[in-house]
Amino acid sequence: MSDLEQRLREEKNARLKLIVTDGVFSMDGDIAPLDKICELGDKYNALVFVDEAHATGFFGKTGRGTEEYHNIIGKVDIINSTLGKAMGGASGGYTTGPKELIDLLRQRGRPYLFSNSLPPPVVAAGIKAFDIVLNSNNLAERLRHNTKRFRDAMTKAGFTIGGSDHPICPVMLYEERLASVFADEMLGELQPHLY
């Protein structure tokens, strides 16, 4: 955070400042200190952009993501996320933000201009997934329970589990060769069940 503040201080004359971060980092489940990032954004008149691909639909008390986890709903300027993970759509995504930004993306965004639109079933699945998240936190609560159960069991078995209370649960082996052997043996256990 001190490095980010230093960079923002150095750019005091910039016409536009944008802080970009993941809400949750995919490899280790680390959670961005989004509340502190938003405070710095306010202090230095910078926009905050968060990628919520590993938070949308299942993180935060009701699955609304890192903003909800930090209790700062409405503080992030731009949110980008996917319909391909917790939201069940298998492809596609979205960006939320100021109308001017969305209009600019519609006019200049290459994927928007040069791609096919999402298939209606994907859109319908995404809308239904958002309805589920907005109307019940049962799935998010069950995922939290299962995550804790997994972390506790793995720790009890002697493994070091990285990250925090996010469902990304990295098993830390700390040696590249050991990780490779471990992955091969796990795949060997799985393969007879695939056919």
Rank of each mutant, 00 (worst) to 15 (best):
A46L: 07
D35Y: 09
D51H: 09
I37C: 07
L47G: 07
G57R: 07
L18S: 13
G109N: 03
N13Q: 12
T62G: 12
P120I: 06
G93A: 00
Q107M: 10
L47C: 07
M27E: 14
Y69E: 09
P98N: 09
A86C: 08
K85E: 06
L105G: 00
N80Q: 14
N71E: 12
E10D: 12
A55F: 04
N71I: 07
T21E: 00
V48M: 03
K128W: 08
D77P: 05
N138R: 14
N116S: 12
L34A: 05
L105W: 00
D28N: 09
I37A: 11
I19T: 01
E100R: 06
K75Q: 10
K17A: 01
E10R: 06
E10Q: 13
L40Y: 09
N45I: 09
Y94C: 01
A125P: 06
R15L: 04
Q107R: 15
G41F: 07
P121M: 05
E11D: 08
I31E: 05
G23E: 02
K99E: 12
N138E: 13
L16E: 03
N80S: 15
C38G: 05
T95P: 04
A55I: 01
R106I: 15
N45W: 03
G29H: 05
Y44P: 01
A14S: 10
V133P: 04
G109I: 06
I132V: 11
T21F: 02
I72H: 11
Y44V: 03
G23L: 01
I132R: 10
N71G: 14
R144A: 08
V122R: 02
D22N: 12
G88Y: 02
A90E: 14
K85N: 10
E67W: 01
L118K: 04
K36N: 08
V123R: 05
L18G: 09
G84R: 03
I37R: 06
V20I: 15
E68F: 03
F130I: 12
N138F: 09
Q6T: 13
A86N: 10
L83E: 03
R7K: 15
A53K: 04
H145K: 10
L40G: 09
D51T: 04
L143V: 14
S117P: 04
G65F: 01
R106T: 05
D51L: 10
Q6P: 02
I132K: 12
L47I: 06
A124F: 05
T62C: 14
L40W: 13
L34Q: 04
N116E: 13
K61V: 07
V123I: 15
Q107C: 11
K43F: 04
L104V: 04
L143P: 05
T96G: 01
D131G: 10
G57T: 07
H54W: 01
G92V: 00
G89E: 00
S26P: 06
M27F: 13
R7D: 10
D77T: 09
R106K: 15
D30Q: 14
K12M: 04
A14T: 00
A140E: 05
N135V: 00
H145C: 06
L40R: 15
T95M: 04
R144K: 11
R7H: 14
I19P: 00
S117Q: 11
I102N: 03
K128R: 15
Y112R: 11
A55R: 04
R108C: 15
P111T: 08
N135C: 07
D51G: 06
I31P: 09
I132G: 06
L8S: 07
T82L: 00
